[in-house]
Amino acid sequence: MDFVMLVGVGLLTGVTTVLFGFGGGFVAVPVVVWADAALGTDAMRVATATSALVMVVNAGFATAVTPRRVLLSLRGSGPLLLLLAAGATAGAFATRLAPAALAHWAFVAYVALTIADLLLRPGFLRPDTRGGTTPDAPRPLPSALGAPIGGVAAFLGVGGSVMTVPAMRRAGHTMQVATALANPLTLAIAFPATVVSLYVAAVPAAAHARVHLVGLIDLRAAAALLLGALPVIAVLRRRPPRIPDRVHAWAYIGLLVVVTVAMLLVV
């Protein structure tokens, strides 16, 4: 039943990958915490590691099927991608060393603060044209943002889209473009985080809980999530839904609210 439930959640991760650039992280973390609750406090560590692997595959596939004209918006972003990867490596090591409860509550706090920021500060829901940015002339993301975004994202087990999508939105991109570009940026974060997770010692409680791990990754949960997600990504990338930009932005915030509530319920 858990496997079937995870496949069902995988369908949702596919939708969020395409529509919101999440790569699955924000959906995968709460559900893997729930599925591996028998691991106790270590469930959060396993969830962040498993989420990283799911995001590598989802974000990589979504990037591969994204139109080239959209990806060209990232031209000149090499330093940003390298710093995202460097920050992610540090964040992945940090979350393995930090108390599990810290990562859990940091996840909840960060998403809650992000929701407040998106609602209160201009540039996401309502245009902020004081900087002279428009969808026709967006600004590139500063490379200096790479290390902190990568570090926080890997520590929390997410792909960074909750930071990169609002940043690109405020830089002048539409929601459709911002969420599409979030996937290659997520890939730069999730790949090194996954490598670190594979070489970290397994959780001692896993044997008693009958959870089979490779490093810190629950391959069974990851496989179920990907089984549901990949077909959805393929279909939605081929026939993307037409969503008004403002509705798209509100839906993004709505999903963050749902994720926050889910993490509070699995405490």
Rank of each mutant, 00 (worst) to 15 (best):
L187S: 08
V195P: 04
L187E: 00
T179P: 03
T164W: 03
H173Y: 15
T164D: 10
M168I: 12
T174N: 02
T194S: 15
V195W: 12
A171E: 02
P166C: 05
A178H: 03
A178I: 00
A193F: 00
A193W: 01
T179S: 14
P192W: 14
G172Q: 12
R169M: 06
V165N: 04
M163P: 03
I189T: 14
G172D: 10
Q176P: 03
A188G: 10
P192Y: 12
V165D: 13
A180P: 06
M168R: 03
A182N: 13
I189F: 08
H173F: 14
T186M: 15
Q176L: 11
H173G: 03
A188S: 15
T194P: 14
G172I: 13
A180F: 01
A188W: 11
V195I: 15
F191W: 11
A167Y: 03
A171N: 09
T164H: 00
T179L: 12
T186L: 15
A193N: 06
T194R: 04
P184R: 00
T174S: 14
F191D: 04
P184D: 07
A171G: 05
A171W: 06
V177S: 00
A188Q: 02
T194D: 12
L185N: 09
V195F: 13
P184G: 09
A167N: 04
M163D: 08
A167K: 01
T174R: 08
A193M: 05
A178Q: 02
A180Q: 04
R170N: 06
F191Y: 06
A180L: 02
M163W: 07
P184Q: 06
T186A: 15
T164K: 01
M163F: 15
V177F: 00
V177Q: 00
L187Y: 09
P184E: 07
T164R: 00
T179N: 02
M168C: 11
T179G: 02
R170P: 02
T174L: 10
P184V: 07
T194C: 09
R170Q: 13
M163H: 08
A171D: 01
A182G: 14
Q176T: 14
T174E: 04
T179K: 10
A182W: 06
A188M: 10
P192H: 09
H173V: 08
T186D: 14
R170V: 09
N183V: 05
T179I: 05
R170I: 04
M175P: 10
F191E: 05
M168P: 03
T164S: 06
V165M: 04
A190E: 08
G172R: 02
A171F: 11
N183D: 11
R170S: 11
H173E: 09
N183T: 12
R170L: 00
T179Q: 05
L181H: 10
F191R: 01
A188C: 10
N183Y: 06
L187W: 09
A180M: 04
L181K: 07
L185P: 09
V177Y: 00
P184K: 02
I189M: 06
A171P: 08
M163C: 07
A167G: 08
Q176Y: 07
N183M: 13
R169K: 15
H173P: 03
A167E: 12
V177R: 07
M168E: 09
I189G: 01
L185T: 02
